[in-house]
Structures are given as C-alpha cells and as structure tokens.
Design a protein around this nucleic acid. Sequence first.
DNA 1: TAAACTAGCATCTATGACAG
DNA 2: CTGTCATAGATGCTAGTTTA
Length: 299
Amino acid sequence: MTLKQLVKQAIMKDNFTDLKGFISFCNEYLAFISNNLQAVIISQNENHYRFYQYDKSGNYQITRPINSNLMYDAKEFAKASKEYVKILKRVKNADKKDDSIREIINNSTYTIQQSIGAALDGLPAGKSNTARKLTGDLFEHFIRLIIHEIGIACRTGVIQVPVIVDGQAQFNMSYQHDLIIEKDDDIKVIGSIKTSSKDRIDKIFIDKFLYNKLTEKDTPHIAVFLNDVQRKNTKKENEYGINTTFLPGHFKGYTVKLNPLDGVYYCDIRPNMKTENILKDQIKTFDHLLIEDIWKFIE
DNA sequence: TAAACTAGCATCTATGACAG
DNA sequence: CTGTCATAGATGCTAGTTTA
C-alpha cells in the first residue's frame, strides 16, 4: 500500500469500527514503513525516540516522535497482535506477575495508535490540524473498544449535572466525557482519554472536584494518556529532539491541594512519573488499568 | 439543513531558571 | 553575560454536535 492510500484509510472512520480494523490498519502501516521510508531520524536528546521521514510521495514530511522501545516492527506486531486480542478477552484472570502480558498490552496499544498518528502526519502541511483532531478521536474510540473487549460496557456522552441553590435546581451543567462506565444506572467511573495531557490536565482535576461537589458523590475520575512528548526543533536544520508536555507542578498541586485522581494511565510513561514523589503513586502504565484497577471501580 | 458553537490538540512562542 | 533547557501560554485550524 502507498502512503497516500494509508492516509486515505486513516481518515475514514469506517475502517476503525472494531479492534480488527485498528489491527489491520496497523499491519498495513508497519509493512509500509519497513521499506518505504526516506529516513529514520534519531532524537538528539532522548535517543530511543525516532521520527519517520516519508519519501517524495509524502513531501518528505516528518512524523511525531515514536518511542522505539514500545513500537513493534511488522514482524513483532504480527505475532503480538494475536496474543493481544487473546489477552484482552481474559485480562480479568491474567497472571498479575507475568510482565510479558503487560508488555504486550502497552506496546500493542501504543503501536496501533501511533501507526494511525504517524500515518496522518503524512497529510499535506496545511492539514496538520486535521491529523490532530482525527488521531485524538480515534484514540478515544480505540480505548473504549479495548474496554468493551475485556467485557465492560462503556460509552462516551454528555452528563447533565444540576446546580442546586437553596434546595432548587437552578440550571444544568452539561459535561461531555470521553469515558463513562455505568452499572445498574450508577455511574461508576468517569474518564478522560487523550493523546497527551498538556494544558488539559487541569480541567480533569476541576471536573472531578466540581462533579463530586455538585452531586454529593465520590465518583472516581480517571485519565488515559498515550504519551506526553512532542517534537522540538534544534538549532541545526534536520536535527530534532523531543520535549515533554507534562506539567508536573500542576499535577502535584492539584493532587495535593484539590483532590487526587483515581487513576492516571500512560502507554508511554515518562521516567519522572516512576521516580518522583506523588507522581509515582498516582501515575501508572496502561496495563494496570486493564489488569487490576478497572475491576475495582465497577465492584 | 445550514449555521453556530464546543472541544480538541500539536506546534509555536515567551518567559524564567540555571550552568558555564 | 550567553546559551540552553524546561515550563507555561497562545495559536490556528479542525471535527463533531447542537441550535435555529
């Protein structure tokens, strides 16, 4: 398949109605990059990040950063993706000590999503925002499909929250949430699903605070992120590095002084999230949501 | 059904902190 | 003082939804 065809496929949401669609797109993309790239550019500050450069058919455009420790190649993915589906179906009873299961969950999720993101980076220069919007939408959809696959019903949608003053509902606030998990008409979890946290992290904390205040409940709020890095240009032409877009100060401030979130999950976790106080208690890799945490929320 | 609105998101740009 | 890096804020454009 050519880059043009891949981009065309990625734009069409019909191709991503089920997990199978995500996986087969990923197979096509990985096959393409295995022998059609102009170059693979290595990030100068963190060497395991790579940028793919397309050839003339993609105007020599350069993709978003790809973490080579998480991204499978075509051959690895062919094998892992089969395991992936099997693991998801039985994840509730997975061996919690088996790290290879966790690796397959994180890496496959990452590889599939980035294959879409990177393919959309092949859109013409003026359409970069289209790529951003679509990757975001597809990531949301992808995570919901995964949650369905493990056997939990979930949806996206708007929740109306009445604001009560002096015992009277004055008006509604409508909240549009990426992830709502219900059970017996009870909202068990509210979640945000985003490719990166950046300037949206504050809102997630605020949402939890206000929602629970208004409803007088203690509904868990979680967040699922793909990563938190972006490409940065260096002084030299054709040299690139990565920037992190996570705001640790805000995250810790809200956690300590407003309210902690009930789970924050990354596919491509930053090193400081594993070592720094507060962060390391709050933030985990994506496998933890599926293997452990999500089951506690819906009990 | 068209127009208006909302939410999203990677990039770009500005500022501040720090090392040499 | 200068250059580099991290953080934070602004930008520009888009898709999808709601309203008129």
